[in-house]
Design a protein around this nucleic acid. Structure first.
Length: 1077
RNA sequence: GCUCGAGUGGUGGAAUUGGUAGACACGCAAGACUUAAAAUCUUGUGUCCACUAGGACGUGCGGGUUCAAGUCCCGCCUCGAGUACCA
């Protein structure tokens, strides 16, 4: 066996690793730990394409590298297995999502490659949940039925040779796992956020305070709650007490405006909505007021922001989180409102309450606003309220009532999306009411307008048209005053929004710089008692309910519509069986279909009694629930008493390296940081950031191939009188495909219609030539058709002159090096079997384009076929070799041969002819130099996560050793240890052949010895005025002065200087010489 | 619009702190082996001029700092990502 044969080597070692549990890891306090984690996947039936394993390969390499360095490495994998696709499929087919999820993960084939009988019907048809393409009926008698069978995520992953400790696998949909998701929910429910200690605390402590002294001194994050005394609290019944506590809980039930997606039948979190449509599926989303569970993530806004400084995430990701949190500093100010209606309407309570978590106490005759520019308060010439603002109905004068109501109605009909796309359209209505300027006493009109959002700040703004473009536009549109409060600035064309310059026309702020004016203004506002300095966040509380089936049930039941928690002993609350996975007729979530779903246990704590009046919660938790803490469960995945033991949590601690896609920037990565901080606050874990270092892998894009089809039509050339009846059917006319050159040349000719450069002339000539070929072909086709269908009317007409040839995606498997396999293409589709081709140099050249990989573009490359053809080691190296991990890059199979050649070349270093052949002689100085510079470079590269350059370095090493004809055992052993993280199978095989009985995964990373790289000579590049002219080999022992002398003596120097003497000579030892002339 | 990131041969990319631009690989071309093909090996390959020696230009564009700039600074252009009435 002298040739490298991955088909023999790779299965052998994968079996060995499995049998010997090579990658099983236990807590070993003698070793330093290292935790390498991948974002776990949602297991879809479509399986993996080459883009998916990219991050897993990188993390696997890093895990293996750290292991070789002596770390105890935790490197687990699992599945985020709750999710929409399985549920949508369940709705369509009635299949339980647990079944399809299992199929997608485990696959349908046994170890011999035969389908499990449970997926085969009596007549041999395969049940369609086992098929990748569900629309294709497939029978086990079909010769290639395996092509359409789900291989299973796990099987696909296993082929690539990852070093995951699979004994730690978790699945979020496994009741053993979600038991603890529910348990964590209970902790969050039973917690409140104490602003004084700046952390989450047990709600029982809060109850104790209420019982003792009421809530007057409680400084908590939560809904506005009227002050009550201990006596009042103690006198209330449990229902009332529970209702009050809901204002404080970190997981709370409230009526909130939510993103309702009718097509999906559920609400979505803000990060699940993109451009006004759902991220998954692109369905429209509307605002709806619903009773929902929410998580009070806003309590953590500041800590989530500050925590970013402690963690190593990319700048762009930190930036995204910062924007999402959206901190802004300024002041909140109250404006008095004068309105004759007040006396009449004052007693009425406003409703419905908008979602304004930050709003302070308001009496009905005040409008509270938030501003970041209190320095411009003298520039206020009107106020604007959001149309939904509760004050609007109270302050509107009778004369304006109709106009206001009409506007409110119009605004409420607009979806979020319409509002966004309608930014330029300025709309609003005057309420008839006036506010009083707190400093000037001027009357300022109060308007409503939908450019003010009900959900941000207080839902109202003080409009400063001179300093804010939106206010300026509004004022200009409605003819409102624009008082200028900036010194020497022209505001006739637009607002001046810069935070620079001096303030003018502003009484006590005149002549101050913006920064100073802000301070002074806040001071004055506070002194007057009309407001305070304030910080606002854009971050909203996270909606935690989903009206779906396939998610974690809440550990919650209701009595008198008050929620109570299920006892720990009764966890997990498992998903009940339902007849359909759809909402009920009255719009309740699918879980409401479950029969007799009540909490039957009597509660020992006396809160809620259980029984048939204790219905369970019908909502389920969102996708991010299970993924917010899974990295903790890997530490102790089988623990039945705790989510993970304290010791193990302490040992494994934070994730040292986390790799995954950037699409989770504001979802998963923010939520898991939030839960980690919460668990830290409540003393369950010792750290408050989950991920120390994060790398976002870039997407691998597909390289699509195109063929160009000419437009065709069938025209009637003869009349009916000729005795011919039917018109020739279009499908009988063969398609004509032109090569890429025709397409290009046509575009060139058309884009330069009136220019007659030489190139254009050439292009025209070439184009004419092509057109003639097309004409001839057309004649030939017409003749053929006439013979075949003598009694039909019509001739073919190719519209190459006025209709552009149409680029059509063609399956990349039919194209090699842009050359189309014409025969394969003809049999690809029935409609192409008679197709004709216009070639160039006898070949059909396809066009290409880089786009996202997708089935519909026929550019998907699966790892399976590459593993089959080249081996997993080649695939692993190639995916890394492609370019920097973070970068988006096109997939192109062409280069994979080069990487495969490298492994074969490496194999040959160990062999001579047919036999394995390594020597035990003392290695040459050269070979040692090659080895040690490789050790140095690879270690440095891996330390900075430069995965691609490592492959090049290994190639260089192998090239050099081949050149040196080195087959020295010591050297080659070093090289394969360095290679092992990238190509573990071949390394294990060669390691074994070198006589080792242990696994190469136990070998130590070689140590770099600088002495091996010491050189006697250095080849100095000598440049003149910075331009390199020649190289000169000089002893490294020379000092700069001596180097200069040697250079000046050298004949080429004298030649270049032409007798002139240099102004200066710069010598950087062992780097460069620069002669300045 | 705002924020962040990126622009280097025919292609993917390398150049880590300012110090030989284009490593490594693909592709292409020529040659060797072969009846032939595949595989393998050898050589060449930034552009232009000279086609030998050599010279000029060259990292999106324009300027600057420096003995020296892909790398630092200023101003633009293009592409990508995120975000968008956030007061």
């Amino acid at each position: 066996m002298s040739e490298y044969n991955h088909r023999a080597i790779e299965p052998k070692w994968r079996k060995s690793w499995k049998d010997n549990k090579t990658y099983k890891v236990t807590e070993d306090t003698n070793k330093e730990k290292f935790y390498v984690l991948d974002m776990f996947p949602y297991p879809s039936g479509a399986g993996l394409h080459v883009g998916h394993p990219l991050g897993y390969i990188a993390s696997d390499i890093y895990a293996r590298y750290k292991r070789a360095q002596g770390y105890n490495v935790l490197h687990p994998m699992g599945y985020d297995s709750f999710g929409l696709p399985a549920e949508q499929y369940a709705i369509q087919t009635g299949q339980h999502p647990a079944n399809t999820t299992e199929i997608n993960i485990d696959g349908c084939l046994d170890s011999n490659g035969n389908i499990h009988t449970k997926y085969v019907l009596e007549n041999g048809d395969i049940i369609h949940s086992a098929l990748i393409d569900k629309s294709l009926k497939t029978n086990i008698k079909d010769s290639n039925y395996r092509d359409n069978i789900i291989i299973g995520y796990r099987n696909q992953l296993d082929q690539i040779g990852f070093s995951f400790d699979w004994s730690r696998e978790v699945r979020t949909s496994d009741p053993k796992y979600y038991k603890w998701t529910q348990w964590i929910f209970k902790q969050i429910f039973n917690s409140w956020y104490n602003k004084s200690t700046d952390k989450a605390e047990n709600i029982a402590d809060l109850v104790a305070i209420f019982e003792k002294e009421g809530n007057a001194n409680v400084n908590a994050v939560g809904e506005e709650t009227p002050v009550f005394s201990a006596e009042e609290w103690n006198a209330w019944d449990i229902k009332k007490q529970r209702a009050i506590l809901m204002n404080y809980r970190l997981a709370y039930l409230a009526d909130s405006w939510v993103n309702w997606c009718p097509a999906l039948g559920t609400v979505l979190a803000n990060d699940e909505v993109k451009d006004g449509v759902s991220e998954r599926g692109g369905h429209p989303v509307e605002q709806k007021l619903m009773r929902q569970w929410s998580m009070r993530i806003t309590a953590y806004a500041e800590r989530l922001l500050q925590g970013l400084d402690k963690i190593d995430f990319s700048d762009s990701l930190k930036e995204q989180q910062k924007n999402w949190i959206g901190k802004s500093q300024g002041a909140s100010v109250k404006f008095e409102v004068r309105c004759s209606m007040f006396e009449v309407e004052e007693s009425q309570t406003p409703n419905p309450k908008p979602q304004t978590p930050n709003s302070e106490h308001k009496t009905p005759n005040q409008i509270e606003v938030f501003t970041t520019r209190p320095d411009t308060i003298f520039g206020v010439s009107f106020m604007v309220l959001a149309p939904e603002h509760p004050l609007v109905n109270l302050i509107t004068t009778p004369e304006q009532k109709d106009a206001i109501e009409a506007y409110q109605k119009q605004a409420s009909l607009k979806s979020e999306r319409d509002r966004q796309s309608d930014v330029k359209n300025i709309t609003g209505a005057f309420t008839g009411a006036y506010a009083i300027h707190p400093f000037t006493g001027n009357k300022i009109p109060v308007w409503i307008g939908d450019y003010v959002l009900a959900s941000y700040g207080t839902g109202a703004v003080m409009a400063v048209p001179s300093g804010d473009q939106r206010d300026w536009d509004f004022a200009t549109h409605f003819g409102i005053d624009i008082p200028n409060v900036f010194e020497g600035v022209d505001i006739s064309k637009g607002a001046f929004a810069e935070k620079e310059g001096l303030i003018a026309n502003s009484d006590f702020l005149n002549g101050l710089k913006v920064k100073d004016a802000i301070k002074k203004a806040i001071h004055a506002i506070e002194e007057k008692g009309i407001g305070t300095g304030k910080t606002n966040y854009r971050l909203r509380d996270a909606i935690f309910s989903r009206q779906r089936y396939w998610g974690e049930p809440f550990p919650v039941y209701y009595q008198d519509e008050i929620p109570y928690l299920i006892e720990d002993a009764d966890l997990p609350v498992t998903l009940p069986e339902v007849d359909k996975y759809l909402p009920t007729e009255d719009g309740e979530p699918p879980l409401a279909r479950a029969e007799n779903w009540f909490y039957k246990a009597a509660s020992p704590t006396g809160e809620g009694k259980g029984g048939v009046d204790s219905r369970m919660e019908f909502n389920t938790m969102p996708g991010w629930a299970g993924s917010s803490w899974y990295f903790l469960r890997y530490m102790d995945p089988h623990n039945e008493n705790e989510f993970a033991s304290k010791d193990k949590l302490e040992y494994w601690n934070q994730v040292d390296l986390y790799i995954g896609g950037a699409e989770h920037a504001t979802g998963h990565l923010l939520y898991s940081r939030f839960w980690t901080k919460f668990l830290h606050d409540r003393g369950f874990i010792s750290f408050d950031e989950p991920f120390k270092k994060l790398i976002n892998q870039g997407m691998i894009l597909g390289r699509s191939s195109f063929v160009y089809r000419l437009a065709k039509s069938v025209g009637a050339t003869s009349s009916i009188e000729d005795g011919k009846k039917d018109i020739l059917p279009m499908s009988e006319v063969p398609d004509v495909f032109v090569t890429k050159r025709f397409y290009d040349i046509r575009n060139i000719v058309l884009s330069h219609q009136n220019q007659y450069t030489k190139e254009d002339h050439e292009a025209r000539k070439e184009y004419t030539r092509y057109c003639e070929i097309v004409n001839k072909l057309e004649d030939r086709i017409t003749e053929k058709l006439k013979l075949k269908y003598p009694d039909k009317i019509g001739s073919v007409d190719y519209c190459y002159t006025d209709i552009s040839p149409m680029p059509i995606h063609v399956d990349i498997s039919l194209v090699d090096n842009d050359i189309l396999d014409i025969e394969a293409f003809k049999s690809w589709r029935e409609e192409y079997k008679n197709a004709e081709f216009i070639l160039e140099d006898g070949k059909y050249i396809c066009g290409h384009e880089v786009e996202k990989m997708s089935k519909s573009k026929y550019n998907v490359q699966t790892p399976d076929e590459l593993v089959e053809k080249f081996g997993a080691d080649t695939l692993r190296c190639y995916e890394m070799f492609l370019g920097p991990l973070e970068q988006f890059k096109p997939w192109d199979v062409k280069g994979i041969n080069g990487v495969n050649n490298f492994l074969r070349k490496l194999w040959r270093l160990f062999h001579q002819g047919e036999s394995f052949n390594v020597s035990n002689e003392v290695p040459s100085k050269e070979a040692l130099k090659t080895l040690h510079k490789t050790i140095k470079k690879i270690s440095e590269d891996l330390d900075r996560y430069s995965f691609n350059t490592v492959v090049s370095t290994l190639m260089i090493a192998v090239n050099e050793l081949t050149e040196q004809k080195c087959n020295n055992q010591n050297i080659l052993e070093g090289i394969i240890i360095l290679l092992a993280p990238y190509a573990p199978h071949i390394s294990e095989e060669l390691w074994e052949k070198l006589g080792h009985t242990n696994s190469i995964t136990q070998a130590n990373w070689p140590t770099f010895d600088p002495a091996m790289l010491v050189e006697d000579d250095f080849e100095y590049p000598v440049s003149f005025n910075g331009k390199m002219k020649f190289k000169l080999l000089l002893p490294t022992s020379l000092n700069p002065k001596e180097v200069e002398e040697e250079v000046m003596k050298f004949e080429k120097t004298i030649q270049i200087l032409e007798g002139k003497s240099p102004k200066k000579v710069i010598v950087v030892p062992k780097k460069i010489v620069n002669v300045v002339v």
